[in-house]
Design a protein around this nucleic acid. Structure first.
Length: 441
RNA sequence: GCAGUGGUAUCGAAGUGGUCAUAACGAGCACGACUGGAAAUCGUGUUGCCGUCAAAAGCGGCACGAGGGUUCAAAUCCCUCCCACUGCGCCA
């Protein structure tokens, strides 16, 4: 969501940004937006002049009615009454024109808003240019991606050795995309979450458990229309959506708020289940608990001053790297290219964990700087030292999403004998266990 | 879920169709005066959005929980919805 004033003054930059994102079909929207904006303002200006006149005449009637009540003289009374009638007639004369102008301005504003929701956010200079995810750029690796000399089974197969998963029952009960986790595997799931939570608390973040359902206007504020259609589950008959990530309710928390400057930055780590339709995403490597309709996640979000968001972005993704390295999981940072970047984002990168089975990296965290896009839609502002209102910037990053991260954890800690080492930092959350021994083959 | 009460600026609160709603009154906050310094006291200031403007000032429009309606004119009357509090009911 860009500022229409910015679009008006920098149409070429906005178009260039659209080209960089390989969305040339949207190029005409820029001129359409500018035309609609001009139409809106012209109608608004004329309507406001008429309203000013109406207000003046109506206000003048007030004292006249007062005089009318007090006055006994018949001649004077009819004179006052004539004046009132003249005022009323003058107001009525312009009523139709005013209504028409209002309607035109409103129609233009509505259409303009639709377009503005679709014009992408200006991307950060650091974003590599490319058409789709194939052009994403590996920036850095952390840890040695080891390949063991024994075979690593698919993650559901590993879990089954511990009687840790029941996909069949989940299918019967809820359909494709759900899971039952059991025993030590379920406990490990919670251990990872709890560890992630404490990790972020140690970084100074405030732990939060948010609402898991939110109103439609909040959903529209935090994500683009296309993302919304492909992700969000709506509650029938209510203005409520199941959240796709706690980012939605966490950023929504600041809707219509003017934050005192000293309350920034807001740094929060939130737990929630996440519900996603995952429309159209299927494949051989997406079975099991890799891509599901419901999972749990520890998230981190930051609301800060505009000039601080770039620094926070770097800090946030580094937290993810540090967390995964503390669990001995090799990771890499993958910078999202312009074409793969969601329309609301200025910059985004994934932290990917090493899969020794596939011998490649797969996404476990996603870190994004939304700039002022969410703040503009949700009216999240702060008053700076000079008393001026400013939009905040918002950022979010996965701390840990256990079902998917369990895949990395199990694969990277699997031993030749089928047991799974429990990383030291997780042991306190696993009742002190150092290793999980399979119950059967 | 039912009933009652309420929602006005940073907070409390007055205002029940016009004749000072940006909003009385009280508090808070900021600045100034007084003081050796402070308290107290006195004075001044203190909503946001949009438009106009290069910008500021100024001017105009909009906003009294949200959205509609009646009217020349709505915080005030009517309708729908939301939220909070209290009581009852139900329920982890």
């Amino acid at each position: 969501m860009l500022d229409i004033k910015f679009v008006r003054e920098n149409p070429d930059a906005v178009k260039e940004n659209i080209r960089k994102k390989f969305q040339n079909a949207k190029l005409p929207l820029v001129d359409e937006a500018i035309a609609l904006d001009a139409e809106k303002r012209a109608c608004q200006q004329e309507a406001e002049q008429l309203k000013a006149e109406r207000n003046r005449l109506s206000k003048a009637n007030g004292p006249l009615f007062g005089q009318l009540k007090k006055c006994a003289d018949e001649a004077q009374r009819s004179e006052i009454q004539a004046q009132i009638d003249a005022n009323n007639d003058a107001v009525k004369a312009d009523a139709d024109r005013m209504a028409a102008l209002d309607a035109r301005a409103e129609a233009a504003a509505e259409q303009l808003n639709k377009i503005m929701l679709v014009i992408p956010q200006m991307i950060d200079d650091a974003v590599p240019i490319g058409p789709d995810d194939s052009a994403n750029v590996e920036v850095q690796r952390f840890g040695e991606p080891a390949v063991p000399d024994f075979e690593i089974p698919y993650h559901t197969a590993i879990m089954e050795r511990f009687d840790g998963i029941d996909m069949d029952a989940a299918g019967r009960v809820s359909g494709n995309g759900f899971y039952y986790l059991l025993g030590d595997i379920a406990r490990m799931h919670e251990a990872v979450l709890a560890y992630g939570r404490d990790f972020m608390i140690d970084k100074g973040f405030t732990y939060c458990i948010p609402p898991f359902m939110i109103h439609g206007n909040v959903v529209e504020g935090v994500m683009s229309q296309t993302d919304m259609d492909g992700m969000m589950y709506k509650i029938e008959g209510e203005d409520l959506y199941l959240i796709g990530t706690s980012e939605h309710s966490m950023i929504g928390r600041f809707i219509d708020q003017i934050l005192p400057a000293e309350k920034l930055p807001q740094t929060l780590t939130s737990y929630s289940p996440c519900f996603r339709k995952e429309k159209g995403a299927h494949g051989i490597e997406e079975r099991g608990i890799y891509r599901i309709h419901q999972f749990e996640k520890q998230e981190m979000i930051v609301v800060c001053r505009p000039e601080e968001s770039k620094a926070w972005y770097d800090r946030l993704w580094q937290f993810s790297v540090e967390l995964f390295r503390s669990l001995d999981i090799p990771v890499r940072q993958l910078e999202c290219c312009s074409g793969d970047l969601a329309d609301l984002k200025c910059r985004s990168c994934d932290i990917e964990a090493w899969s020794p089975r596939q011998q490649k990296y797969f996404e476990v965290c996603s870190c994004s700087n939304l700039g002022d896009a969410q703040a503009r839609r949700l009216h999240i502002r702060y008053k700076d030292e000079s008393g001026k209102m400013q939009l905040c910037h918002t950022l979010n990053n996965t701390c840990v999403a256990p079902p998917r991260m369990l895949i990395a954890l199990l694969e990277n800690n699997l031993q030749a004998d089928g047991s799974v080492k429990i990383p030291k930092v997780l042991q306190p959350y696993m009742g002190g266990k150092e290793v999980l021994v399979p119950l059967h083959d």
